[in-house]
């Protein structure tokens, strides 16, 4: 079962962007442009997610021409599971009691 982790609304916005392309390494400005978050909000969120081992972070391996190397981010497997569970629990996916009931019944019938 996916771990039940509580996220703030802004963290969920970042997670939604990362979940959309889980295999792609994203950089800060790319995420900031997509989510609309300011750097002062985005980076502390990425720090928290990396501390909780939900996000992998690494530097670009090769030095690109004309710009510094970028720091890159993507979800870990653990992060993918936690993000999917948190996003599925968001209002609009399905009424929460009904979802819980479906899961319980599915568990009982299998």
């Amino acid at each position: 079962m996916a771990p039940r982790v509580k996220f703030s609304a802004q963290t969920l916005v970042v997670l939604r962007a990362l979940v959309a392309e889980p295999s792609r390494w994203r950089h800060g400005y790319d995420l900031a442009s997509e989510t609309g978050l300011k750097s002062g909000s985005l980076y502390p969120i990425l720090v928290r997610l990396a501390d909780r081992e939900l996000v992998d972070a690494r530097w670009e391996e090769e030095q690109p021409a004309g710009r510094p190397r970028r720091h890159l981010y993507r979800l870990t497997d653990h992060g993918m599971a936690a993000a999917s569970a948190a996003l599925a629990a968001q209002p609009g996916a399905a009424p929460a009691p009904a979802r819980a009931a479906v899961r319980r019944l599915a568990g009982e019938s299998s």
């Binding site: 980076y43 972070a57 710009r67 510094p68 190397r69 970028r70």
Partner: peptide, 16 residues
């Protein structure tokens, strides 16, 4: 252990 995050933010500055 937190310094790379500030460096990461700084590395993006030229793209903004």
């Amino acid at each position: 252990d937190k310094r790379p995050w500030a460096e990461a933010l700084q590395a993006e500055t030229d793209q903004i």
